[in-house]
């Protein structure tokens, strides 16, 4: 329900919005997002930490219509676990494990309102797993396909820059788990033609 309220509030604010400048200018922009990510999983560990940092970098091509296309990468924390004296068939041990991911995505976004964009992207998540068990290091990398959808609101602060926020839902096919991230967004149109 909290998410519903956030969405409604965001849409309502945007409806007051700033008028659209519908010119024929094309632009290349970069969008930097930093914020908080929550990992949703059916894994059953009491001590699993599912809250962490989320950051994205997008480079978008923005033609004169509603649709933009671009590339995205970034960093998203997924989870960590640190358990002492874990009982196993080999004796007791400490368990440490953590996972983060780096997306390599193609992203589409669409201006649905003057300051609001919907985005959808797909590509691969590079998954980085590390930790320790029985004194042996755990370390592995894996690739998962994935997808995300987001909504962003940006407010122009001058002719080429805008700030705002983004709500991002991500799905990791390999893990069959998802994250929801809320990010502060900084947009910079670095090239226009």
């Amino acid at each position: 329900m909290q998410i519903l309220k956030i969405i409604i509030a965001t849409v309502a604010i945007s409806s007051i919005g700033i008028s659209q400048i519908d010119d024929k200018t094309y632009s290349l922009s970069t969008e930097l997002g930093v914020g908080y990510s929550r990992y949703f999983t059916t894994m059953d560990y009491d001590d699993l930490n599912q809250n962490g940092f989320s950051g994205t970098v997008k480079v978008m091509w923005n033609p004169e219509h509603l649709l933009s296309i671009g590339l995205e990468t970034g960093y998203q924390y997924l989870y960590s676990l640190d358990v002492s004296d874990y009982s196993t068939e080999f004796g007791n041990t400490n368990v440490k494990a953590s996972m983060y991911t780096v997306p390599v995505f193609i992203v589409f976004s669409m201006k649905v309102l003057p300051n609001i964009k919907l985005s959808a992207g797909s590509g691969v998540y590079l998954l980085f797993n590390s930790g320790e068990l029985f004194g042996d290091e755990l370390s592995s990398n894996q690739i998962s396909i994935g997808a995300h959808m987001g909504i962003s609101y940006t407010y122009p602060i001058n002719n080429s820059m805008a700030i705002g926020g983004e709500l991002l839902y991500s799905y990791f096919s390999k893990l069959q788990d998802q994250t929801v991230a809320i990010q502060f967004l900084f947009v910079y149109d670095f090239f226009r033609y």
Binding site: T41, T42, M43, Y45, L48, Y79, L81, V95, A97, M99, L127, N129, G131, L138, S139, S140, N141, Q142, K174, L175, Q176, D177
Partner: peptide, 10 residues
């Protein structure tokens, strides 16, 4: 689901 992923032989 497990907390470890990746190449099983690693």
């Amino acid at each position: 689901k497990s907390i470890i992923w990746g190449d099983i032989e690693s």
